[in-house]
Amino acid sequence: MADTRATGIRIEGLRKRYGAGETAVDALRGVDLQVAPGEVVGLIGPSGSGKSTLLKCLGAVIEPSGGRMTLGDEVIYDDGWKIRDLRALRRDKIGFVFQAPYLIPFLDATDNVALLPMLAGVPDREARERAHEVLAALDVDHRARAMPAQLSGGEQQRVSIARALVNRPPVILADEPTAPLDSERALAVIRILEKMAGQYQTAIVVVTHDEKIIPTFERIYHIRDGRTHEEAGEGLRP
């Protein structure tokens, strides 16, 4: 298997067309994007610009109509060709952080995090040890046995980040992870993502509308009418 961590995620000329004929809609018209391991980039754009479609393509949830996507040296899509098991790819190599934490309500914090390695066949005990390790890195291990309903919003979001990190994926896709949070907590989440990206050498793409956090990215991809252009951001101040 290719080392997916070496060069992060790269997409070239990614296209996505919905429907066919006169009613066809081109949501993505040749998107280019590259995120190195340990890097956090922002992806911003107005509604209908293609952000969600791009996120779904990056997350191997929908298949692009054309273009190429690689995770490290591993080709995921290449002009209509795709790897066979997208489900396993999502499980093992892509982490997701959602706008709402979407924790499984009937599992405690540890098992919410440990579920992914368990699904990948890791023995329960080892999966829980991994979960504790990531929860500790996110300073939420003291709430390891709490059910999601017993956690605060910030704690839930940290548990969901822990879930995204637990399989050490080469890429994490964060969909509006700070939307429901105030400025202070939003910045705290971005700091956590920055720290985890460095600690686990993970490429992180943060889709956001949040004006408070947009300047904190060192690189920002703007998407409009299905195309991206890149600009530099200010980066997080210490």
Partner: peptide, 16 residues
């Protein structure tokens, strides 16, 4: 349904 969608996104098998 939302939890099932999340489980599927996270790579849970249909048979699970």
């Amino acid at each position: 349904i939302r939890e099932i969608a999340v489980l599927k996104l996270l790579g849970t098998r249909n048979r699970t």
